[in-house]
Nucleic acid binder design. Structure first.
Length: 567
RNA sequence: UGGGGAGUCGUCCAAUGGCAGGACGGUAGACUCUGGAUCUGCUUAUAGGGGUUCGAAUCCUCUCUCCCCAGCCA
């Protein structure tokens, strides 16, 4: 399951928390939070943050809040709230009975704003958005004070209340913190903290027509919840001076108690062969490049879940990638390693033939059927065994036969003997072709003495093939997935990530055969199809017609050899 | 040419003045009724220059490169 405590490498946030505990900075408390905006589905990058925040709390005996940062009603929806809750729970984290919402603090935030005005720390600016932008200056040039910067406390208070009361149209004015228009840090050039926005909020409805900005709301949310370590990503680093400035002002005014929360930044997750920006993900869904947010090719939690990934694998991945402040791109191969590692231990083995080749065993009695014993999981004897039916006509994988085998190919070929897993040794005696010279059937003989898969005379075969009995197998659809993008960094070459979409990211096989026990698989259940990979039952399955998603292939040495030859 | 960050194997993360280590990947082999799993070997890195020091990835200094910030988004 999870990495044992002792094996866990430390990182700068763990060290910081340890130090804060030693110095008694927060009365030895550790309280974190995961604060998504409900305007999209969670992805693997969020999983890193979730595992970090909830993991830290768990580790230090503290708490972690799930808090929706719902301060912009134009973009936020209940659908996203639901999916986020679902994803966090699925990953296995507990945030108590109900999540928290920034919108629950709107009243306090408003009062705090009035206080700021009274203390001369905020003013109402009537400039247009364009004027504000112009007067903000540039990265190298300082900004200019707004002509409204000198308004009296009384006028500011009156105007701010009018904003709240809906007396002014959207965009007519904003409340700004009064700090320093010449600061080298643009975030300190009198940032806007409240704007007028007549939009229905998913929770507060039409109670408010002014909404706080993230910059202003977030530190207050943290302080109200008595968060000790407010962990966020690197792009908020420039925001920290304002975070501290605001909380200090409110603490001075007696609106907040010390000790105040502190913001800590880490590098967000980037992964090869996919994209993790909300904008790009929305484009993929919106333009129909995938079937939806939970398409198994999507890097969303919902996508990985449908693909057959387990919470344990994702959590383990989040632990293994480590934590630092430098930009990085983690290889998809590590995630694939994590899911194989987990599933190898727990997925029951089954036999399934994806691209069937008919094999007739000529010396096997017509009409005879026998039940052969098959191990459910060689990694876990406790999972027992099962019976699989065998008969005269079976299917094997097309890839497992070569009429003219290359040197390192040691599967079935004319005249060659191989083992059928858990069954018999068979020898190929004849190849049947159609008009187009394609192999359509194999004629073989079997050795009755090898029942179960071993030869009493000790003779060896170089290959073991999986198979299903033609008369007993169930038909199935199997969806094979590959990387959504064919390049490690989509868009790196052309600037347009869509050009790097992998046209072969989904291959649907409709004529597959699976062993009979798989006929009515429960959606979500996961299996290893021997020699092929891990597969899970998709929700699209119908009675008697299962649909499987390939979660990940098994490591495939032969494929590597073949590819190496061609390349 | 403002402000804030960051540079260590192909990738990700360690080493906090004392043998540059682990994981993934790659590669070679052992083993195997999954060309899976498991086991073993190998491979490759401190951005660059100067300095301090018995000793520098680590401290100082200069340089270079990369990332973020000019929303009434978060």
């Amino acid at each position: 399951m999870t990495t044992p405590e002792a094996a866990r490498p430390s990182h700068f946030i763990r060290e910081m928390i340890t130090r804060d505990i030693e110095t008694n900075k927060y009365g030895r408390r550790v309280h974190t939070r995961f604060p998504p905006e409900p305007n999209g589905y969670l992805h693997i990058g969020h999983a890193k943050s979730i595992c970090l925040n909830f993991g830290l709390a768990e580790e230090f005996g503290g708490k972690c809040n799930l808090r929706f940062d719902d301060t912009n009603p134009e973009k936020e929806e209940q659908e996203y709230v639901d999916s986020i809750i679902d994803s966090v729970r699925w990953l296995g984290f507990d945030f108590g009975a109900a999540p928290l919402y920034a919108s629950d603090y709107f009243g306090f935030m408003y009062q705090a704003a009035e206080y700021l005005i009274s203390a001369g720390h905020a003013y109402v600016d009537s400039q247009t958005a364009d004027e504000m932008r112009e007067n903000r200056g540039t990265l190298t040039a300082p900004g200019k004070d707004s002509p409204y910067r000198g308004r009296s406390v009384d006028e500011n208070l009156r105007l701010f209340r009018e904003m709240r009361d809906g007396r002014h149209p959207d965009g007519a004015m904003v409340l700004r913190a009064k700090i320093d228009m010449a600061s080298g840090n643009i975030n300190m050039r009198d940032p806007a903290v409240y704007r007028i926005k007549r939009a229905e909020h998913h929770r507060t409805g039409n109670t408010w027509c002014i909404y706080p900005m993230y910059t202003y709301a977030h530190p207050i949310e943290d302080a109200i919840e008595k968060i000790t370590h407010s962990v966020c990503t690197l792009e908020f680093e420039d925001q920290r001076p304002f975070y501290d400035w605001l909380l200090e002002r409110l603490a001075e005014g007696g609106l907040l108690e010390r000790p105040l929360p502190q913001q800590i930044e880490f590098a967000r997750l980037n992964m090869s062969h996919t994209v993790l920006s909300k904008r790009k993900l929305i484009t993929l869904v919106g333009q129909g490049h995938v079937r939806g947010w939970d398409d198994p090719r999507m890097p969303t939690i919902a996508g990985f879940r449908r693909r057959g990934y387990t919470p344990a694998a994702i959590r383990n991945f989040c632990e293994r990638i480590g934590l630092a402040k430098r930009d990085s791109v983690v290889e998809m191969a590590l995630l694939e390693f994590c899911i194989r590692e987990d599933l190898n231990l727990r997925a029951p083995r089954k036999m399934a033939v994806l691209r069937p080749l008919r094999v007739v065993i000529e010396n096997y009695p017509e009409g005879q059927t026998e039940e052969l014993n098959a191990v459910n999981n060689p990694e876990d004897p406790g999972m027992g065994s099962r019976k699989v039916p065998f008969s005269r006509v079976i299917y094997i994988e097309q890839d497992d036969f070569r009429e003219d085998p290359p040197k390192q190919f040691f599967r079935l070929a004319p005249g060659r003997e191989v083992r059928l897993r858990y069954a018999y040794f068979i020898t190929c005696t004849r190849v049947v072709k159609n008009d187009r010279q394609e192999v359509v059937e194999l004629r073989c003989t079997y050795d009755p003495a090898t029942r179960g898969g071993d030869s009493p005379d000790g003779r060896k075969v170089k290959a073991t093939l999986h198979w299903v009995s033609a008369d007993h197998a169930a038909g199935a659809e199997v969806r094979l997935y590959d990387h959504l993008f064919r390049t490690p960094e989509p868009g790196a070459g052309t600037g347009n990530f869509l050009e790097d979409l992998n046209p072969g990211s989904l291959e649907t096989l409709g004529q597959c055969y699976v062993e009979p026990s798989l006929r009515d698989g429960m959606p979500g259940s996961t299996f290893q199809f021997e020699r092929l990979g891990y597969f899970c039952v998709d929700a699209d399955s119908s009675t008697g017609r299962p649909v499987f998603n390939r979660t990940v292939t098994l490591k495939d040495t032969w494929a590597k050899i073949e590819k190496g030859k061609k390349g």
